[in-house]
Design a binder for these strands. Structure first.
Lengths: 334, 334
DNA sequence: GGCATTATCTGCAACGATGTACGGAAACGG
DNA sequence: CCGTTTCCGTACATCGTTGCAGATAATGCC
């Protein structure tokens, strides 16, 4: 049986409550008493029972992180940093994979997962704003991504549109005129894909280049769909001289397919991505992309969530944070 | 205030304990009673309080996963699958990043993290067998990887040596004779790196090719170290016609450096890796590697751990599981 | 010196579930 | 028909903390 507060209290010759007070930094305790308690704790090797503490206090000191798939490199890198940042403030992160399925997202939002955490970092993909608003409980929720942009919610995101414009402008400046986009539907204008597509269109407009819907190919944001999308364009005989993958995985998949087909990158077709995952630097050719300030996103989202949990942030409306970005020009689109 | 069992009991006109019994599938309950309780639960929207349940039962239905760094692609993919498999058996996975630091590993093994979980999936890197044996508590621990191979522990691993031999033999069969290895010290023979290096040496022996320590370059198992290791070899003027990265990240980093330096892959230097992460298929050239049966590893390690937790597995000695492997021949080393 | 105030510590109840023990009714056996 | 067994359900204690409301002693103030 583990050592309890009662054992410590007995050993230190004080009441159980005094031990609790010492542990919770209660103000009025004589240094000598505090010392005796600490000695007893050290001697017995006492460790607080977190479950009991949670039951009594209603706090778990865990944050929930809901994302579609932890094996996606962007999410893996993000999760890793979020955990590191959270642990600096004494919180753990519990991850739940939604698979981008509305049902699973809903379960994460209001099911048992919710109970285990003091607050949620939620990347909605399938669910819409009203549904989330109706189902979020009383605990804080900070949204990640851009699927839902709504004043009712705290949101940490990136400059999708501006960054996409920058990438596209960079391709245009290099003389590319038929820039294919993979990862969106031609008409899309909301959500992460939509925003990035808007950014692309804006750059085209600025440069006076006409938008061609035939150059826009949808696909899930994975390497294989990037490859499939490019294969589709090539097979359809649609000419293009650049590919903008709406995330790096898509771009890298696309680039792979181009090279397999004997298309030279960047000579024949330039390729650019979005996210600046570690893999991008080491691809061959290395991938031009945009770094969306992941450190800042991790820092700010955890900070905001914990501030909400601890009552340090009390804005009535949702707080919106937009991290900066940096264009990373590499070999795939010099 | 949330709905409690007491509320349900009142609504159903039974005692609190009967509600508990219904929820825990106690045998002797009249169908009619069971139905009334279920109706009340549905009507009130009752959800069991997991914290209270944990406190009373001593179980959390969470598994701990300790690994060095979740952003490493192999671990990210593994973690993702482990979570999926665990959830099928009603468990969640809580991840802790050790950073491959002994202190952090120790904390994960016996600190608060331990309390939160019913059992641990532990990838030791810095800690040694005796230290782990002394500090593991009473809850089940299943080791992953090969840093510690010891009959005292349950262990789920892969055929490192055989697989490394297969990769090396494949390179040799293609006529390569000076195969550099990145990710190990020349004399290493224990741990994952050591085993894979042994496999490499065995293949050399079988083929009657002499082992040259100058071809073995150490480095952490990341892309950047793979690149740095190859840069070192090239700068030192050590000739080689193949590189075996002891994991895919190393191999991909190495390949990148080769290509940057104008070395043709696979014409001048063939490259092979280990792990078969998704990225390997989409690299250019695509990476020859070995797939270590990650699905099997995920299935078996979660299965074993949960069986231990639930008392379904009771072998006194550690159970050792070795997943099979498949060589994936791709463009980087045809 | 008397009374309010401050400092220090304590006991009890409560968080919401489960384990143990037991009571009564129904079914069964001889 | 009575004792035993099998069902079905309940009451109470308990897991290890923290919140609340004191109790007691020491100090400050006039």
């Amino acid at each position: 049986m583990a050592v309890t507060m009662n054992d410590v209290a007995r050993a230190a010759g004080v009441s159980l409550k005094t031990v609790s007070n010492v542990l919770n930094d209660y103000e009025f305790i004589r240094p000598a008493t505090k010392q005796r308690v600490h000695d007893a704790i050290a001697e017995l090797g006492y460790e607080a029972n977190l479950t009991a503490r949670s039951l009594r206090s209603g706090k778990t000191r865990m944050l929930g992180l809901v994302l579609s798939d932890l094996s996606a490199p962007y999410y893996a890198e993000l999760a890793s940093r979020l955990m590191t940042v959270a642990s600096r403030r004494g919180y753990r992160v519990l991850v739940e994979q939604s698979g981008a399925v509305a049902d699973t997202e809903l379960t994460a939002l209001q099911g048992p997962f919710r109970q285990l955490t003091d607050g949620l970092l939620f990347t909605p993909i399938a669910m819409e704003a009203d549904a989330v608003a109706a189902r979020r409980g009383t605990k804080p929720v900070v949204l990640l991504g851009e699927h839902i942009v709504d004043p009712r919610f705290d949101l940490v995101t990136m400059k999708n549109e501006e960054a996409a414009t920058a990438v596209t402008a960079h391709l245009l400046a290099a003389g590319r005129r038929r820039i294919a986009v993979v990862g969106a539907y031609p008409g899309e204008s909301a959500g992460t894909a939509g925003l990035r597509l808007n950014g692309y269109r804006k750059a085209l407009d600025d440069a006076g280049v006409a938008f061609d819907p035939a150059l826009v190919a949808p696909g899930e944001w994975r390497r294989d769909s990037g490859a499939a999308a490019v294969a589709g364009l090539l097979d359809a005989g649609i000419p293009f001289d650049a590919v903008f993958g709406l995330n790096d995985a898509l771009a890298l998949g696309a680039m792979h397919e181009l090279l397999v087909r004997g298309v030279k990158v960047p000579q024949d077709v330039a390729v650019a991505g979005f996210d600046d995952i570690d893999e991008a630097r080491f691809a061959s050719p290395s991938l031009t992309t945009v770094s969306p300030g992941m450190d800042e996103i991790a820092e700010r989202s955890i900070g905001l969530l914990i501030d909400r949990i601890e009552g340090l942030e009390s804005a009535d409306d949702g707080v919106h944070v937009e991290a900066g970005f940096v264009l990373k020009v590499r070999e795939s689109a010099p």
